[in-house]
Every structure is written in structure tokens, then in C-alpha cells.
């Protein structure tokens, strides 16, 4: 059975069992290896992606529920040459140690920052409750998310010259 999936803005026709978890399709069919297989039970968060603006656990989501919906993975946040603000902040603050949990962390943070560019510490922690990190870089991860928020706000504010050109 063919299912049409929209991932990072491109649409794909996927020939798979409709019950297949999204994570498998992302990694095996689309070669998007950012989202990781951790527990396979929706408990660790390393497979987190964003669907229609909300963080979801891709190991738990059968693809049949995704027809007509927008999936964003960590690959959709920027490129190696032009990293997005979240990627830039995580690099800048060296927030990864082994890095296995990081794509999931970034996608949970992405969903949060889309809603609110200046979240409180409490809100960041709340948004990351479903993401585990075993290396213990939590403090750097928190700092990187705050930094990403700053970068996003700076990007969306009018620059000093902008007022004059219009």
C-alpha cells in the first residue's frame, strides 16, 4: 500500500505497511538518520520529530496517521553550511557529548520555540521531560536552547538599517 508523506517540505510516496512506525520509514526509506532508535517504546525521546508543529515520538506513530501532515526532522532545521539557529546554538555551546539524544532534544526544543521564542526555564524543562540524555549534558542542552531562542529573536527583529530603507 502506498502512503504519501510530506517530510521537510518534500513529498514522498512510501510503499509500506500502514502500521509501520514513522521512524523506520525516515531512516530506512528516506535515509534521514537524524531521528534515532532508542527504546522503541516512546519512553526515551531520541526519535522525536515535529508533526504539524508539535513534538511527537516517531517510533510510536504508524505512518497511516500522517497522510496530509507536515513532518519535520532535525535535517529540516538547516544544512551543514547554513545551520539553523537551534543547530548553531548547539554547536556554539557544544551541547552534545555522544549526541544520540540530541536530534530528539532539538526537535522538542524546536516545537517549544516555535510556540514561544522566550520560554522560561520551567517551560524548557517541561518540554524536555520526555527526552533522556545519558551523558549528562543537560545543563549545556538547556543553555543551547536559551541561546537558540536569542538567535531566533535577533533574526526576527528589524536590523538597524531596516527602518531607513522602507
Amino acid at each position: 500500500m502506498t502512503i504519501s508523506l510530506t517530510v521537510n517540505g518534500s513529498s514522498h510516496a512510501i510503499d509500506a505497511d500502514p502500521a509501520t512506525p514513522l521512524l523506520y520509514v525516515l531512516r530506512d526509506d528516506l535515509g534521514l538518520n537524524g531521528a534515532k532508535y532508542g527504546c522503541g517504546l516512546g519512553q526515551c525521546g531520541s526519535c522525536t520529530v515535529v508533526v504539524d508543529g508539535e513534538a511527537v515520538l516517531s517510533c510510536m506513530v504508524p505512518i497511516m496517521l500522517l497522510e496530509g501532515r507536515e513532518v519535520t526532522t532535525v535535517e529540516g532545521l538547516g544544512t551543514i553550511d547554513e545551520p539553523g539557529p537551534l543547530q548553531q546554538a548547539f554547536i556554539e555551546l557544544q551541547a552534545a557529548q555522544c549526541g544520540y539524544c540530541i536530534p530528539g532534544m532539538m526537535m522538542s526544543a524546536h516545537a517549544l520555540l516555535r510556540r514561544k521564542a522566550q520560554p522560561s526555564e520551567e517551560e524548557i524543562r517541561e518540554a524536555l521531560t520526555t527526552n533522556l540524555c545519558r551523558c549528562g549534558t543537560h545543563m549545556r542542552i538547556l543553555a543551547a536552547i536559551r541561546r537558540a531562542g536569542e538567535l531566533m529573536r535577533a533574526a526576527s527583529l528589524p536590523g538597524p538599517d531596516e527602518g531607513r530603507t522602507g
Binding site: 502500521a19 509501520t20 517504546l41 516512546g42 510510536m60 504508524p62 497511516m64 496517521l65
Partner: peptide, 20 residues
């Protein structure tokens, strides 16, 4: 076994719930 088909609720149950 992940079986497809059957009624909507059953497919959902098998795909999303049965694993755990």
C-alpha cells in the same frame, strides 16, 4: 504481529498500542 486491515479502531490499536 502487526496486522493491517479490519476496522479503523483495530488497525490503530495494533499499530499504536499493542506493542506495549
Amino acid at each position: 504481529a502487526l496486522a493491517s486491515g479490519g476496522q479503523a479502531g483495530e488497525t490503530l490499536y495494533l499499530a499504536a498500542c499493542a506493542n506495549c
